[in-house]
Amino acid sequence: MPADRLLPDSTTEDLLAMVRDVCRRELAPRAAAAEANSEFPREIFRLLGKQGILSLPYEEEYGGGAVLDEVSLQVVEEIGSAWATVAVGLTTHWASCHPLWKHGTDAQRGRWLPEMTGGGLLGAYCLSEPEAGSDAGSLRTRAVRVGEEYVVNGMKAWITHGGIADFYVLMARTSADGSHGVSCFLVPGDAPGLSGATPESKMGLTGSRTSQVRFENVHLDAGRRIDKEGRGIPMALEALDTGRLCIAATATGIAQAALDCAVGYARERHQFGRPVIDFQGMAFLLADMEAGVAGARATCLDAARRKDRGLPFSKQAAIAKLVATDTAMKVTTDAVQVLGGVGYTKEFPAERYMREAKVLQILEGTNQIQRLVIGRSLAKAA
């Protein structure tokens, strides 16, 4: 059943109805088979580009819809409820466009952003390394200035769309000055010396390709640096705050899908002459699941509305990511329990939702990191 949404206006209602229709026709029918076969749905992202979904956050001059974060997050949630791989891919693509959009020159944005937002170019975000995950200031990948070029060497890890992206937003070290020595670059996917490793064999999100990406003497024109040298970490943290909201929305979508699956089954499954949803124990379990999903959605929207108004939202983004992903893990686990034995089989999607929910507690900073962010904000509060 569709999520009960309170939207700003009729235009937004029409947008969400269009997204829901695309999810129903194009995404949901293909998700199970593609995940079972580890097939990355590249054509789906071209479709999202044609439908204007990839470009929703951006200004009209770049082909965008200039929609509020409050709205774009609900779009992500709808997509997440239909196919989590696509929602995570959309989140990754937006994160990959973010530094160029917010910090690129007019010439850089005019050259690259329209094709990115139109679906012609799919992005990947290169921050993490084998020895640098949450500690972004310890990055070892280096970009050395040689005349009007930079020469890049290093390895990135856990890269969504690694090896198949059309462009990579790369955070690389340009000086030894710790977190102040990292810069941001826009790297074409076909650059000589750039290669993706064998994809990781994952528990869930098997349709999404994740791999290490190696840079071996990759030559970049200096015009592909975004903003000044040393500005990489602030850009990365800025993108992470927004990315956490998108992951929270994806988690809420998965939780909603699991709840819908469980409620549908509990209505149809009969024991002792009546639907199992009529038994108090089952009804209370489903009620807790519904309350959890509604709470996760509320935390996402609170953070998004703060962002839309230009207010600080880092703490709220961490709260949303923590609450929504932990909720998704609980709700999907409970959905498997509601279905009983068949919930543990691939006959129903509940087991897939459960596997997909797990990784969302890790992406965009583990939930332990979210607690650290929240705790630090409390320590600094007046």
Rank of each mutant, 00 (worst) to 15 (best):
A172F: 01
P41D: 02
A258C: 08
A34D: 15
A266M: 13
L286C: 01
G163W: 01
K202A: 03
E60L: 11
S81P: 04
A172G: 07
M155V: 13
G104Q: 02
V331F: 01
M235L: 12
H93P: 03
E131H: 14
V71F: 11
A124G: 01
S208C: 13
Y125W: 15
F167K: 00
L372W: 09
D9C: 08
T206V: 04
S211W: 03
D278Q: 13
V67W: 15
D135E: 13
R355D: 00
R225K: 12
T206S: 04
L259C: 06
G123R: 05
D177C: 07
F45M: 04
G181V: 07
C300T: 13
C261G: 04
D14N: 11
A3T: 11
E149C: 12
L122R: 01
L56I: 11
S201I: 14
M235K: 03
V331H: 00
F215D: 01
G110L: 05
K330V: 11
A350C: 03
S179L: 09
S179H: 02
A28W: 13
L6C: 08
F45H: 01
E268G: 10
D106R: 15
Y353P: 02
A357K: 02
F45Y: 12
A318K: 04
S211P: 00
L372V: 12
D334I: 07
L48W: 03
A136T: 12
L73Q: 12
S314W: 10
A257T: 01
D221M: 07
